[in-house]
Every structure is written in structure tokens, then in C-alpha cells.
Design a protein around this nucleic acid. Structure first.
Length: 639
DNA sequence: GTAGGGTTAG
């Protein structure tokens, strides 16, 4: 079930309309059967006819408002070079729709060369998504274009910009197999992809090694990129190493290099090194810019130097570098995380007073910080303020608001926020679900919490163990046994690790609900994590009322897991079998198995079996039991 | 006339 359907609404899953949709006229334009009149006449009149005809045709194409028909009329006149120039022209006048129409025509009419592809890919890097770019690349017939360095780099730039590092790397490897010889641009492009990915540093190192193996020289941009990778992976020592190496090789660092090294110092808040770096930078004649000073603020904040941070923020303001919310966000987030929530709020208030541009980050930080400090009413008030003053929503601000509304228990505002999410076609995230499920649990709406978790799971989010564990307990308490088991299974078959005690917890719940078959699955898969008392409880329950066909299996499973079976269990099993004579084979099987494992039935059970032996075949029963007797005597003798 | 690098929330 859908999360939103709990509230009588649905999240839309509308496909994003492509801004590049090509009008049908582009491909279905009437072919012009008539030869344009001026073409032949010019040809006859002039000894150098084409340049001027082409020039006017090029101009007409460039100015055309109906590009497809202009192309149908004049396209033939133009050379590939002219068409490439037109692409360039459209790019300069930001006519991206024309670029795609023209390129499509060039493809259909096979009037394109290597630079048509590389230019088009460059120009459209922001307008095409990764899949479209890949499709375009793979559609290139011309082998020399497919392994051209400009073309390959352009495709890779697009993939990396769209955050598709893995597919970029895969394509890169394929390109090399196809004969591409990568250059430093290729490597800096791929390295840039390592900045944003998890664990990017080792991947960056591999690329650097490969670059060196290919006898390519590291240049200023490569150094800039690896410094950024170091910074985003909190590796300031490595960043220092590259910074020094770069200078040793004669590349003088620019503000980018300084800002990355500075950023590398920020994670650990090493303000001494940061101050020294700023001094070095100034003595090299470089002037700290907005980014440098904002990053320095981050260093001070991380280092806990809040007075110095406030001074620096004042300096940023006086320089006109605090016109958007970022420096305020850095400081207030740091203050809040250091427990100085009221100091943080002062910075926030100052920001509001100064009418600083905001995309909602500041509100999101403050609302979350207030919630963390359990100041829910203030958090809710800010969420309400944001609603009235802004219309810039994203999933993070929506989650912050939702959290605040949930914490003060304002169901109506919660619903409004979910509705807004739906209207804006912003999909709920992992955090959205967590916030809602926690809220429903607090409100004792356990089945709604359960349905929300099902929804979450079906959308590909793996709920956290703590939340699952608490929901399992609550569902158990309200006798929702199979729902509890369903939550357990989401964890069990998810990628996350789970605490061993959960197996016992669900086992008790399943036993309370008499879901013995499910209980057996839990015991079978996790016998080693379950202690003796619940195992015993399970064994007794199963012998009493579990499916008779599985009784032997259960006993064997318990035995194999190291559980010592006692006489009571055998007595119960035997009495079940005696009640259903058609299961006599199972009883015989059990008695034989017992002999094999050194178990013996006690005398009263033995007598009971003998009393009913006519049902099973006296001879057989006598044989099996006497075998057990021999064993018993042997056992007593050796004791 | 085409290509590559830096800062913010959960």
C-alpha cells in the first residue's frame, strides 16, 4: 500500500517531460522535391558560386524560426563545416531546441563528422540525461568518432556531471578496450567523479596510478582535482603531500588549490594550519575570495572557535560575501551541533533580519537543530514561518517540517505537508518514512506504522533495525503477530545486519500467536542465536499442536543444532502419533532415528507404544524398542 | 570557434 493512501492521496510518479522533445515536424517535414531555384541559377552565373549561396543559406538556417523546414529546403546546400558552425551559433544564442533539431537532421542525413559529435555532446551536456548521452554515444557508426578523445571525454564529462560515476568508469574501460588512449582531461574528469562518491579516495588513487603508468604528467588541474578528493575524504595529510608535490614540480597553486587544501583542514578544524595557509597565499600575491573565506569560516567553526567565526562572518558581510545563506548556515549548524542552540538561533534571527537570500537550508538546519534539542514548539513555529515566507521546497526541508509537526503531534499539518510533497511530485525519502513511522508508533497507531513501513520497503528503502525492533514489539503487544513477522522478514532478508536477540523476540511473538510454522522457520535458520528457554517453549508448543508431518523434522533440527532433546518431547510426539495411526511410518521413523542418535523412550512411553502396537505391526515395534533397550543397557554399563 | 578542478542542510 502507498504511504499516501493512508491519507487518501497518491504520490504521483509522473515522468519528467523532456525539455528537448523534438516537434514532430522535425522528422516528418515534407520533403522538397523541387530544387531551390536560386541554387542552379547561381551555379550558372558565377565561377565561385557556392560560398555566397552557402553563406546565405547558413544565415537563413541560423535565423529560421521553423528550423526543420529551413533544413529541408537548404540543408543539402551546406557542408558539414557549415552545419557545425550553425550548431555553434545556436549554442551561443542558447537555442538548445535548435541544436537538437539540427543535430537530428545531421544524423538523419549523415552530414556529420567527429567534431559534430563532440560539439553537440559538449553543448548538450546539461540538457541530455546520462541514458540519452550513452545512447547517442553507442549509436555512433563511425569508429574513428567513437574512439576520438574529444568525443569520449565529452561523454564522460556528461556522465560524471550527472553523478554516474560507476557507469562512467565502465564506459571508460570499454573505450580503452576499443582503442581509446586517454589523456589528462579524461583522468581529471574521472577524478572529479571521485569527489562526490563514497570512498572516493582509493578510486582516485587508482586513477592517479593509471595516469602515471600511461606516462602522463600531472598538471595543475589534476592536482586541483585530487586535492578536492582529499578534502571531501577528510585526508588533510594526503592533501598537503599533493600540494607540496605540485609546487616541487613547478606548478604554482591558484585559489582553487588553496581552497581545497583549506577545505581538507576543515574536517578536523585545524585552524592553525588554515591561518598559516592563508598567510602563504597572501604572500604569493593571491587575494582570498568569497569561497576561501567561507571555507575558512568552516575551519573555525569545526575547530570550535565561535568568537573568531562571528568576527569572520562580520568580515564576510562587510565584503559583500554574505549575501546568501551559506556562511550563516555553516556557523549556526556548528553552534547547534556544539549544543549552543540559542546562539545558533541568534545567527538565524540576524540572517532573517538582514533579508539574506535563502533556499531553505537555514530553516532546515534550525528546525532540525531545534528538534534535536527537543524544542519542538519553536521548531514547529519555524516550519510554519517557512510555509508562509517561502515556496522553495525540497525533500530535506519537507522532512524537517514533517519532523517538527510530528513531534508536536499536529496531524493536520503533517497531512498538509504530505499533500504538498505529493503536489510538488517530491518522492518521500528514507527519512520521511522514518519520521512518519516513529510518529505513528508514538501515537500508538501501530498498524498504520506497519503499513507505512511496508510502503517504505516496497519503494526500496530498508528500514533501520532499531525502528523495526520497536515496531515488532509493539505489533506483538497488540496481537498483530503476522505483521510483526513481516517486519522481521524485511530486516532478515535485507542487506542490513541484525541483532541476534531479535530472533528470540520474534520467536516469543510467533509462539504467542500460535504461528508455529513461522516459528519453526525462525528456529531452523537461527538455532545458534536462540537460547534454551524459548527453544524449549517452541519445541513443546510444536509437539503439542504443530503440523504432525513436521514433528520429526523439528526434533532433528533441534538435535542437530546441539539442543538436547528430553523425554517429555518424545512422549508428546509419540502421543501425537498414537492419536493418528495413519502416521505410523513417521513414528517408526522417529523410533529408528532415536536409536541411531542414542535416544531412548522412557518406560511409560514404551508401554504406551506397546499397548498400541497392533496399529503399527507388533514385530516391527518390538524390534525397534528392543534395539533401544540394548542401547540403554550398554549406556548404563559404561556409565 | 569544442573538453577537466573548490564551500552549505538530513
Amino acid at each position: 500500500m502507498e504511504l499516501s493512501s493512508s491519507f487518501g492521496m497518491r504520490f504521483r510518479h509522473s515522468a519528467i517531460p523532456s525539455p528537448l522533445a523534438i516537434p514532430a515536424s522535425a522528422s516528418t517535414a515534407e520533403p522538397h522535391t523541387q530544387t531551390p531555384p536560386h541554387r542552379n541559377t547561381i551555379k550558372l552565373r558565377s565561377s565561385k558560386p557556392f560560398p555566397s549561396a552557402r553563406k546565405s543559406a547558413t544565415l537563413e538556417i541560423q535565423r529560421s524560426s521553423d528550423l526543420p523546414s529551413a533544413l529541408a529546403r537548404l540543408g543539402e546546400t551546406l557542408t558539414v563545416k557549415d552545419l557545425n558552425a550553425a550548431l555553434y551559433h545556436f549554442k551561443n544564442s542558447n537555442k538548445f531546441n535548435h541544436i537538437s533539431q539540427l543535430f537530428k537532421w545531421m544524423q538523419e542525413n549523415k552530414k556529420l563528422d567527429v567534431s559534430s559529435y563532440s560539439h553537440y555532446m559538449r553543448f548538450m551536456a546539461n540538457n541530455l540525461d546520462a541514458a540519452e548521452m550513452l545512447q547517442l554515444y553507442h549509436s555512433i557508426q563511425d569508429e574513428s568518432a567513437r574512439k576520438n578523445i574529444f568525443v569520449c571525454n565529452s561523454v564522460l564529462v556528461c556522465l560524471i556531471k550527472k553523478g554516474k560515476f560507476a557507469s562512467g568508469m565502465k564506459l571508460f574501460q570499454q573505450m580503452q578496450l576499443d582503442g581509446l588512449v586517454p589523456d589528462t582531461v579524461t583522468y581529471s574528469t574521472l577524478l572529479a567523479g571521485c569527489i562526490k562518491i563514497e570512498n572516493g579516495y582509493p578510486k582516485a588513487l587508482e586513477l592517479i596510478q593509471e595516469l602515471q603508468h600511461n606516462k602522463l604528467q600531472m598538471d595543475g588541474v589534476i592536482y586541483g582535482t585530487i586535492l578536492a578528493v582529499c578534502a571531501s575524504n577528510s585526508k588533510w595529510e594526503e592533501a598537503e603531500k599533493y600540494f607540496g608535490q605540485m609546487k616541487d614540480e613547478g606548478h604554482s597553486p591558484n585559489v582553487y588549490h588553496y581552497s581545497s587544501l583549506l577545505n581538507a583542514y576543515s574536517t578536523c578544524g585545524n585552524y592553525k594550519k588554515a591561518d598559516k595557509l592563508i598567510q602563504d597565499m597572501k604572500s604569493e600575491g593571491l587575494v582570498p575570495n568569497k569561497v576561501i573565506l567561507t571555507t575558512l569560516l568552516k575551519v573555525y567553526v569545526k575547530g570550535g572557535l565561535f568568537d573568531k567565526s562571528r568576527e569572520l562572518l562580520a568580515e564576510l558581510k562587510s565584503l559583500g560575501y554574505a549575501e546568501d545563506e551559506m556562511p550563516y548556515c555553516i556557523l549556526m549548524d556548528g553552534l547547534a551541533k556544539a549544543g549552543q542552540i540559542h546562539e545558533a538561533k541568534l545567527i538565524f534571527d540576524e540572517m532573517i533580519k538582514n533579508h539574506v537570500r535563502s533556499d531553505g537550508y537555514a530553516h532546515s538546519i534550525m528546525i532540525s537543530a531545534l528538534c534535536r534539542s527537543k524544542l519542538f514548539r519553536e521548531a514547529k513555529q519555524l516550519a510554519k514561518d517557512f510555509e508562509t515566507t517561502s515556496n522553495k521546497y525540497d525533500i530535506v526541508i519537507l522532512n524537517s517540517m514533517l519532523c517538527a509537526f510530528c513531534r508536536v503531534g499536529e496531524m493536520e499539518s503533517v497531512m498538509e505537508t504530505l499533500k504538498k510533497m505529493d503536489e510538488l511530485a517530491i518522492s518521500p525519502s528514507y527519512n520521511t518514512f522514518h519520521i512518519l513511522i516513529k510518529y505513528f508508533c508514538r501515537e500508538k497507531m501501530y498498524l498504520l506504522a506497519y503499513r507505512t513501513m511496508k510502503d517504505m520497503h516496497s519503494k526500496g528503502h530498508q528500514p533501520g533495525e532499531e525502528l523495526c525492533s520497536s515496531l515488532i514489539s509493539h505489533l506483538g503487544q497488540v496481537n498483530a503477530y503476522s505483521e510483526a513477522f513481516s517486519v522481521y522478514n524485511m530486516l532478515r532478508y535485507g542487506k542490513r545486519t541484525m541483532c541476534k536477540s531479535l530472533h528470540e523476540k520474534i520467536l516469543y511473538i510467533l509462539l504467542a500467536g500460535h504461528l508455529l510454522k513461522d516459528a519453526y522457520v525462525v528456529v531452523k535458520d537461527n538455532a545458534k542465536s536462540i537460547s534454551r528457554p524459548p527453544t524449549k517453549k517452541f519445541a513443546i508448543a510444536f509437539m503439542k499442536s504443530g503440523n504432525i508431518n513436521y514433528i520429526n523434522d523439528v526434533l532433528k533440527t533441534l538435535h542437530d543444532s546441539g539442543y538436547k532433546l528430553d523425554q517429555d518431547l518424545f512422549a508428546m510426539a509419540v502421543s501425537r502419533y498414537l492419536g493418528e495411526p495413519e502416521k505410523k511410518d513417521l513414528l517408526l521413523h522417529l523410533l529408528q532415528w532415536m536409536s541411531g542418535q542414542g535416544y531412548v523412550v522412557d518406560s511409560s512411553t514404551r508401554n504406551l507404544i506397546l499397548k498400541h502396537s497392533h496399529l503399527f505391526g507388533r514385530q516391527l515395534i518390538a524390534e525397534v524398542l528392543s534395539k533401544q533397550q540394548v542401547q540403554l543397557k550398554h549406556k548404563n554399563l559404561t556409565r
